[in-house]
């Protein structure tokens, strides 16, 4: 029953998300009669980049198996962004170290999350939720209410583009390729997928389960930290609510992109398709002139429709 369907399922989700994104974009251009098509695409790519960065990390976490999810992403983004901006203090020479600090903050958050999950046996949903409260508070306290602008070079870089493609997007594409290879062709990637399918069997097969989980949570939070730092530069400063919509976005792009929420099956390209799709849906609704209420309802219905049509998850034991 699952055998033939598996091949189809493997191909269906991520192609589907790209197709959907294209359809939405076309619908939008139909309305505006082609005006600003290029700009919309560029804007889509810019915003999609941030969804992709957090979505990649979330994808690895979710693939570890049912119940694994990182809800602390917005808090990590905020914290890392705040730390980075504050350290950089509008000075160009400080950019490199500032970015490193953001990554380090993310890594520490990831390690803390894992500590709660492992040492205190707290389910990941609750663990990352609790830690998100803590780290958001830390960010609020650390920022002292000030919103510091990014150094000019950094700010320019974050909105710069080449041939219509933003630098950040290029970087994110590169990162995606690396992570795609890691997922499919490295021991680490195989370990994640194995653990997601059958953690006991993984243990008996010599896979270092806990080490892999630790690395995954750290990576997810580090990517969130990177995303927060870049987003702060992109939007001219670290706002305290900047991560709010990226929580739901990170989960949505993972699932719409075809990764199994039950674990054990992941794919990177789908995350791009899903990110573009999500942004374009919102943009299209704006174009057609719908208000916030309708926008939210339609966004929700589209997410459900996409999942319902794609259907099916791995049968859990």
């Amino acid at each position: 029953m699952m055998r033939g369907q598996l091949a189809r399922l493997a191909r269906r989700p991520w192609i589907w998300s790209f197709v959907a994104a294209a359809v939405v974009w076309a619908a939008m251009e139909g309305f505006t009669e082609g005006q600003g098509a290029g700009e919309v695409l560029t804007a889509a790519l810019s915003f999609a980049t941030f969804s992709v960065l957090v979505g990649l990390g979330q994808m690895f976490v979710v693939t570890l198996g049912p119940g694994n999810v990182d809800l602390s992403i917005p808090a990590t983004m905020t914290l890392a962004g705040t730390i980075a901006m504050k350290y950089m203090d509008n000075q160009d020479p400080r950019i490199a170290v500032g970015i490193l600090l953001a990554l380090a903050a993310g890594a520490l958050v990831g390690a803390f999350n894992y500590g709660l999950i492992r040492a205190l046996r707290i389910p990941p949903i609750i663990a990352t939720l609790s830690s998100s409260f803590l780290f958001l508070s830390a960010a609020i306290w650390y920022s002292r209410g000030l919103r510091i602008k990014p150094p000019p070079a950094f700010g320019d870089f974050s909105i710069g583009e080449v041939l219509g493609l933003p630098y950040l997007t290029l970087g994110a594409i590169l990162l995606s390729i690396l992570l795609h290879i890691a997922l499919n062709r490295t021991i680490y990637g195989r370990s994640v997928i194995a653990i997601g399918q059958n953690p006991r069997a993984a243990r008996f097969s010599g896979i270092p389960v806990e080490l892999t989980r630790f690395a995954t949570y750290v990576m997810c939070a580090t990517l969130a930290g990177l995303s927060g730092c870049l987003f702060s530069a992109f939007s001219g400063g670290a706002a305290l609510n900047m991560g709010a919509e990226y929580l739901l976005a990170s989960i949505a792009v993972v699932v719409i992109g075809g990764t199994s929420v039950a674990g054990g099956f992941a794919n990177v390209p789908g995350i791009w398709g899903a990110s573009l799709f999500l942004f374009l849906i919102v943009a299209m609704l704006n174009t057609y002139g719908f208000g916030a209420g309708i926008r939210m309802i339609l966004t929700g219905l589209v997410i459900i429709a996409v999942i319902a049509l794609a259907g099916g998850q791995k049968t859990q034991r």
Partner: peptide, 15 residues
């Protein structure tokens, strides 16, 4: 280790 209860200890069903 070769598992006896292959569903819970041995098989990776999606692979």
């Amino acid at each position: 280790l070769v598992a006896g209860d292959r569903q819970s200890d041995g098989i990776f069903p999606l692979w």
